[in-house]
Structures are given as structure tokens and as C-alpha cells.
Design a binder for these strands. Sequence first.
DNA 1: CTCCTCACTTACTTTTTGGTAAGTACCCCA
DNA 2: TGGGGTACTTACCAAAAAGTAAGTGAGGAG
Lengths: 127, 127
Amino acid sequence: MTTPGRRTGPYICGIDAALDVVSGKWKGLVLWELHSHGTRRFAEIRRALHGVSEKMLTQHLRQMEEDGLIHRKVYAEVPPKVEYSLTEAGVSLNEALLPLGDWGRERLRREGLTVKAAATPTASTTP
Amino acid sequence: MTTPGRRTGPYICGIDAALDVVSGKWKGLVLWELHSHGTRRFAEIRRALHGVSEKMLTQHLRQMEEDGLIHRKVYAEVPPKVEYSLTEAGVSLNEALLPLGDWGRERLRREGLTVKAAATPTASTTP
DNA sequence: CTCCTCACTTACTTTTTGGTAAGTACCCCA
DNA sequence: TGGGGTACTTACCAAAAAGTAAGTGAGGAG
């Protein structure tokens, strides 16, 4: 039990409340994956996020669902099928993250840091 | 030695590179404190961020300095005096965080979450 | 003389986070 | 019959982040 919690309770400001929802090794990527593909199945996301474990992925997806960022649709089919997509809040969060992504890319340029091979080769632009 | 590192190396995208620099329980607040006051001394920041320990604060400040977000000026005076201020990168990061702060405040409103007493009562608006 | 302030550092402990590996239950393909 | 795929869960472990408490060394207030 005990949701692998980080529901710290009272926040001190908006940034706090927003960062809390994005922090987690893969959450940003999940957000971006769903943003650029609209709807994805569990295994598709897993393959897109090279290196994520099933445990971490489910954990993150559950938290993001709880936080109202993504929607989870289960098909009562026989090989299980679950589809994830962004909610309105998820879409707007993604938009709010765009300037931060710009800043990050600028930082990479500035410091001459390496960027790993794109997580999703099919995605148009990486954030 | 060995900076309490979280320099994970190769990033996968800009958001990654930006989040890495802001994640840490107090970094967002430090950024905001310096943004709204221009220049602050160690003890002033400490008092503004109610609840931070000296260890965590120095640790965060050092990392942020390493990441080029803040500038640290030491006066060779007899009761020590150190002043912190934002660098250009720090200022632009703060700007990039504004939409995220908006989103966070919207989230707080949406979910009816509590907000702790402002960290800096003198600050005009909380992010 | 004693305590408080400044800006830290160090050692140690706890909490949180992430990773590994296995198990589940059923299906399709060869 | 054996292997792969679907979407997970569980138990256990390692690593990282954060908290606690104490020490430093000089100055100024009482």
C-alpha cells in the first residue's frame, strides 16, 4: 500500500505545485510522447522511453492519472489493451513546459552537453 | 568531496536538461527569492525559505552556482558576508518558469489544495 | 564571561526513489 | 510444445536525496 507517495501536502507556490507533478524520471517524456502521438498503449510508451522499467512506467502513469494529467482507457479484451491519452490539464501542462524546454535546449547548447539519441525517432521536434 | 551529484550525463531533451537544474526541494524558491529581491545574503535566504536546513541550502546554492544560475560574491570581512544574485541564465530560467507557475496555481485552484503561508511575505506575487 | 550571529562543514541516519527479477493469465504463431 | 506478446503486480535491494546534530572561529551585545 501507501502510494509511492510524494504528495507533500501544502505547497508554497505554483511552481512547487507544478514541479511536484512533473518530477519523476520519466514523466516529462511520457507527457511528450502522448503529446506527439495523441494516444498510445502501454507497450508503445514503454518502447518509446528506452530504458524505463515496467514498474516505473506503471507507477508514473498511475500518479499522472491521479494528478489528472492523463486518461486511462481499459478495453476488456482478451490480450489486455489499455490506451493512454492527455487530459486537458495534461495538454496545458505541456504548453506551459514549452518555454522550459527552450531554456533547456539553450542550456545544452551553452554548456556543450551531450544529448542522447531521441526517445521517439518518429517525433517531429524534441522538447 | 564528490559533489552530491545528480549530473546524470546525456539528457534526452531540453525539458530534461531544465528540470535537472530546478529539481531539488528548494531550488525554485531560491530562484524566486533572488528574483524578487535582487541580491540576498545566505541568512536572509535561509530565513525566507522557512524550514530549510543550512546543509540543504548551501548544497543547493553550490549546485546552482555550478549550473550557472546564480552568482556568489564573498566579502573578505570579519563576520563573513556572502551575497547571492541571479545570473543572466538564472533570470531567463525564471522567465521560462512563469507559465509553469501559472499552471501550478491553476492546479491548486482546481484541486482546492492548500497553500502554505507565503515564504516571503514581502514578495509582491508568488509564482 | 556567555551567548548569539555569520556562513558554512562534517558525520551520521532516515526517507524517498529507482532498479531487478520474478510471477500472473490468457492468446497467437510456428 | 515452446516462445512471444499483452499489461500489469509483488518482493526485495541499491542508490540518491534529504534531515539531524554538532563543530568552526571570530565579533558584537548584554
